[in-house]
Nucleic acid binder design. Sequence first.
DNA 1: AACACTATTCTTGTATACAAAAATGTTGAC
DNA 2: GTCAACATTTTTGTATACAAGAATAGTGTT
Lengths: 218, 218
Amino acid sequence: MEQRRADNIAEQLEELIFNGTFSNGDRLDEVRLAEQFGVSRTPLREAFQRLALSGLVELIPRRGAFVRQPGPVELMEMFEVMAELEAVCGRLAALRISDDALEELRDANAKCQAAVDNRDADTYYIENERFHMIIYQQSGNSFLAQEAAKLHKRLKPFRRQQLRFRGRMAQSMAEHELVVQALERGTADQAADTLRGHVAVQGEKFHQLMATLKSEAD
Amino acid sequence: MEQRRADNIAEQLEELIFNGTFSNGDRLDEVRLAEQFGVSRTPLREAFQRLALSGLVELIPRRGAFVRQPGPVELMEMFEVMAELEAVCGRLAALRISDDALEELRDANAKCQAAVDNRDADTYYIENERFHMIIYQQSGNSFLAQEAAKLHKRLKPFRRQQLRFRGRMAQSMAEHELVVQALERGTADQAADTLRGHVAVQGEKFHQLMATLKSEAD
DNA sequence: AACACTATTCTTGTATACAAAAATGTTGAC
DNA sequence: GTCAACATTTTTGTATACAAGAATAGTGTT
């Protein structure tokens, strides 16, 4: 059989939690999941440990593993941190970004724009992600890039919902343009501020996010 | 026997790695550690999963768990992120801090000063930590506070070494004073910049950090 | 002596077994 | 009918067993 199942299983469970197969208070039944995955409880429990540390699951002693989705407050906090991390990445990237990476950013942006024109949300989503990942990497700090990517991934499901709202993709595109300009010019503070504003949940976005939260709690 | 061993064991292993019992490339022998802790391999392996996700240990399939200390580059990266996180905490705290917390900060600072006068490095260390934790919490974002505390903990061993250098404690104290002033006045950017500079590794601190790294690689 | 190849030993990864705690169901008193 | 006490069943946590891959030692060849 394939080796290193534990981490693989962790990923699959993560996916199942993200896509809503398991919702907030659900207990992850060891034996049921074990036979579902076709493995024994041992690798499953190892996966639980990982999920627990990443905060997706709460391990209650002698009780089991419960999925733990962030509530409204925690979610706002996470978005605030994401906005600040993006700002930091942007500020550093403005000083350190390579010409090649700038070209990549422009390419991602062009494909984003095309996706907006075609109303192709999936492509938009993928290219948008590439855009941000490039900025993380061009911060020149791989530890920072990793942390940013980690939180980005965790917020994925909620961001995805956000894109559904009318005009959101177009506005997001305009902001991307400003970010690229700031990075081109090397104006660090401007890059930071633009990215912070781009990611931050404020104004109408706040209501939209709360709306998606409510609709998920059914 | 006590329940929930896995996380407890993870903590103990973490401590053993921090205090240098295990150094960089060491393999964590499952059977040896198991009998050392008086448990079976199962809870140990669960602990490994946690340590792996927190980055202290690298899990190589079919090879085992190897302790993974950050090298000079990664360490600089981590300090850079720490500086930025502190800056963010400071900026938010400047707007959100309570009067009580300000009083706590002044108290921690006073005790720090007393420790400097008495050349009491341990007390200095404890009160210094309290100082920073208060700022994390007063950011009003508990997710941010948690992340900051996590990284703070990870950098602990290296920061501790830093304090040994001549004049470091006194300089650090002066910077703390500036931080408190900025927080009192609510000047967010000033609080952020001061804290960033306080934590950042630059100038002489860089050489000092590298010196401690070399002395540990023996 | 250096190297390739094989056999042996160790170590990991996973399944299973078992004990202890929690949850559930049942009985009986009021 | 409600509740409490006890018995039964689940479920977790840990130990042990076992199979397969990796490391190591040993053998023979050049």
